[in-house]
Design a protein around this nucleic acid. Sequence first.
RNA 1: GGAUGGGUAUGCCUAGUGGCGAGGGCAGCGGACUGUAAAUCCGUCACAAAGAAACAUCGCAGGUUCGAGUCCUGCCCCAUCCA
Length: 376
Amino acid sequence: MYKVIKKDGNAKRATMETVHGTIQTPVFMNVGTAAAIKGAVATTDLQEIGTQVELSNTYHLHVRPGDKIVKQMGGLHKFMNWDKPILTDSGGFQVFSLAGLRKIKEEGVYFNSHVDGRKIFMGPEESMQIQSNLASTIAMAFDECAPSLATKEYIKNSVERTTRWLARCQTEMKRLNGLEDTINKNQLLFGINQGGIHEDIRIEHAKVISEMDLDGYAIGGLAVGESHEDMYRIIEATAPYLPENKPTYLMGVGTPANILEAVDRGVDFFDCVYPSRNGRHGHVYTNRGKLNLFNAKYELDARPISEECNCPACRNYSRAYIRHLLKAKEMLGMRLCVLHNLHFYNNMMSEIRQAIEEERYKEYKKMRLDGFEQGE
RNA sequence: GGAUGGGUAUGCCUAGUGGCGAGGGCAGCGGACUGUAAAUCCGUCACAAAGAAACAUCGCAGGUUCGAGUCCUGCCCCAUCCA
C-alpha cells in the first residue's frame, strides 16, 4: 500500500507498506546483487548506515547459488539475515549488460552463463518463478533494458515485446502468489517503462502499462549511454503518465545530482551501484563533491572523509589511514569507503524526505547541487 | 685467490641468444565506472619528437659485424660454492 503524505512541486514524500515493513520514500535501495553488498558489507551493518531496502538480482542468484537452494534455505530474507524489504531485479538488466552472452526471442532470453557458459533460459515466467523462490518483497517485471542509443525502430519493437512480457509476468505472479508452498504470497510486482530517449514511445508505453494495475512502476533503460539532459527530459515526460497512486522507481540511477533532479520530477525509488562500486574504487562522496582517496594529496590528510558525516568510517578514521588501507589492498579500506558512501546516499535521502515534508525541496536541491560544485 | 651464475630504462623484478629506438609485471601517478561478468578497466610511467627529423640507453671499456642487449677480450660489481 503506497500513500503520498506530502507533495512539494512534483517531489513526493510517501510511505509504502509491505509485509517486510514500511518504506519511507524517496528511498535509495542499496544494491547487493548476489545477496551481498560488495565490499564486505554485512546485513548486520545496514542498520548503522540507514538502509531501508536491499536489492538483489534474479539472474545472478539463479546462476549462483540457485533460487531453489535459496528457497530451501527459507527464502532470501532468512538466507541473508535481513528482515526488511528486498527488491529483486528481474534479469532484464542482464539482457543489456550481458549482451554478448545472450539471444533474445519472443519467448524469452537465452543466456550463456557468465560463470560457466551453460545455457540458461529466462522468460517472464522463469523470472517470476525465480523471484518467487527468492521470496523478495518486490519483484520486477522481466523486460529488455535496451541501449538508449539503439535505433528507434529497435526500441519500438523491444518495448512492444516488453509489454507482452509484462502481461505474462503479471499472470504468472498471480499464479505463484496463490500456490500453497510460496514463501511470500504477497510478493509485489513492479512493471517497467521503456522507450529509450523517445518521448512518444515512453508516453505510449506508460499509458499502456498504467492500465495494468501493478504495484509500482519503474522507468528503466536510462543511464545506459544517453546524456543527462536526455535522461531528465525523459523522466519529466514519462512520470506524469504513470499512476499517481503507485510508486515510481527510476532504475539504476544514479549520481547524487541525478537523484536530486529525479525526485524533483516525481520519482520515489532509486538504486545504483555507484556508492558501492565507487567506494570499492576509493571514490567517496562528500557534500562538496567526490574525492578519490587514492590520490597522493591525501597521504597526510588527518581529516575524516567528511567532517559532517556520522558514518563508521568518518567517526573513527582519517583520509590518510583509509588511503593507506586502499593502497595496501586491505579489505577494510574498501569496506569503510562503501559504508561511507551508502551512508551518504541513505542520509541524503533522509534529508530529501525532510525537505519535502517542510516544503523546501527546491531550496534543498539547489543547496545540495551548489555544494557538489564547490570542491574541497 | 679459484669455480659457477648474474648485472636490461626513473624504484624493484623480469623477457630477450645477430635486425632492438628493447616486451611484460610490480610499485608510482592520473582517469573511468549509473536496475554490478567490475576489490575492475584504461592511460601514463628515460629524453626528445609528429619528422622519410632525430640517433639516448641493456654494468664499464674495447673489438668482430652491413648491423651487437645478444658474439669476443679485458675490467668493475653482485650472488652462491670452494680454498
